[in-house]
Amino acid sequence: MARILILDDVMDILETMSFLLIAEGHGVRIETQAQDALRSLHATRYDLIITDALMPHMNGLEFLNALREHGILIPVIAMSGGATDSYNEHILGALRDTATYFLRKPIHPSSLCEAVTQALEGEKL
């Protein structure tokens, strides 16, 4: 069992993804705002972060940079439903290079479980 924090601005995704991860035996916390997610990460220890890429206020890349600045070095799975313009395209490209895993929405449940398992195992090495 791992403790996982999920950040996405779409509540429906957070809820259904947590059904899946809880059924897999994980403990899950959901956040819709990057600032709140950072606060939670300071308060509690997590094993894995799953974050959306394009969100209002703070995007996934800024969130990832903020994590690293705060010394939070746990694995991160980034996900995105695709870029809306060339600037966002650039953000996705950078996230693909920096996150532990990058998944394209819609993610198949089995692909998510696989990425979660591998990200957590990578951590143990």
Partner: peptide, 13 residues
């Protein structure tokens, strides 16, 4: 496309 993918995701899960 971005919006629709966000809506298909919960269906899959």
């Amino acid at each position: 496309a971005h919006e629709l993918n966000n809506m298909l995701q919960p269906i899959f899960f």
